[in-house]
Design a protein around this nucleic acid. Structure first.
Length: 223
DNA sequence: CTATGATCATTG
DNA sequence: CAATGATCATAG
C-alpha cells in the first residue's frame, strides 16, 4: 500500500486526488485484479481505497488511521445520489455490559471522525467502471450525536434486559441492530429474558441510509 | 469464535 | 423497489 499520511491535510488531499477515478484504474495501480462483481468480494472496494490512502489498521480493532484517529468508510451511491446500502459500524456487545455507557462505547469512538468516500454502487455499472466521488471528513454534530446516543441507549437497554431477539432493524431512528455473521449458524452468547445465557446471532450496529444520505446532502449543500 | 471490509437477495 | 435479515472473504 501507499505510505501512511502523516496529517489530516495530507490524507484529505490524497483522498481528493482519487475523486473521479474508476475502480479499475485504482486496481491497476495497486496491482490488484478487479473481480467480476462483489458477490464474493464484498469488502473489495473498501480494501482498495485503504490501499490507496495508506490505511494501517488491517483487521485490528482500531481506527484505520491510528495517528489521526480517523475511520475510513466507503459508501455505495445510486443514480439518485443517495446511499444504496446501510453502513456497518461495529459489532454490538451482548454480554459483560456492566459499566458500559455511551461515553465509553466502541461505537462512539468509531464514529468520532469518519472519512466518507462515496463510490458509484449501481449493480448495472461494471465494477471496474464505477467512479470514486469526493471525500467528506465528518464528525457528528451535537444533534447527530444525541440521536445516535438515544438509539444506542434504547438498543442496549433491550440487550441488557435479555430482549436482544425482540430487536428488529426497525428499532432506532438512525442506528439499527442487525445480524453480522458469516451465516445463520454462527452463534454467540447473550442474555436471555430470564437473565440466563442464550446463544444468538452476533449483531452489528448499522447507520440507516436516510441518515448517511443526510450527511452527504449537508456536505454538498455547503459546497 | 471475533475482528476487519461490506453487499447480497428475499420479502413486504 | 427499498429495507430487513442473511451472507461472503480473510486474518488471527
Amino acid at each position: 500500500m501507499r505510505p501512511t499520511p502523516q496529517t489530516e491535510q495530507e490524507l484529505l488531499s490524497r483522498a481528493h486526488e482519487l475523486a473521479g477515478l474508476s475502480l479499475g484504474e485504482l486496481a491497476q495501480e495497486a496491482g490488484i485484479i478487479t473481480p467480476p462483481d462483489l458477490k464474493r468480494d464484498k469488502g473489495w472496494v473498501g480494501q482498495l481505497l485503504e490501499w490507496h490512502l495508506g490505511a494501517t489498521a488491517g483487521s485490528k480493532p482500531v481506527p484505520d488511521f491510528i495517528e489521526l484517529g480517523i475511520e475510513l468508510k466507503t459508501i455505495p451511491i445510486g443514480y439518485n445520489g443517495k446511499p444504496l446500502e446501510t453502513t456497518f459500524v461495529c459489532v454490538a456487545p451482548l454480554i459483560g455490559l456492566q459499566g458500559l455507557n455511551w461515553e465509553n462505547s466502541h461505537i462512539r469512538h468509531k464514529l468520532a471522525k469518519v472519512l466518507w468516500i462515496p463510490v458509484e454502487g449501481e449493480r448495472d455499472i461494471v465494477l471496474a467502471d464505477r467512479r470514486v466521488g469526493s471525500p467528506l471528513l465528518w464528525s457528528p454534530s451535537p444533534d447527530e450525536e444525541q440521536r445516535l446516543r438515544r438509539d444506542w441507549e434504547e438498543l442496549m437497554d433491550m440487550i441488557v434486559l435479555g430482549h436482544v431477539e425482540k430487536i428488529t432493524a426497525r428499532h432506532g431512528e438512525i442506528l439499527q441492530l442487525r445480524p453480522k455473521a458469516a451465516n445463520s449458524k454462527a452463534l454467540t452468547e447473550a442474555y436471555g429474558a430470564d437473565g440466563q445465557p442464550i446463544k444468538t446471532l452476533p449483531r452489528g450496529f448499522y447507520l440507516k441510509t436516510h441518515f448517511t444520505a443526510e450527511l452527504l446532502e449537508r456536505y454538498f449543500i455547503l459546497q
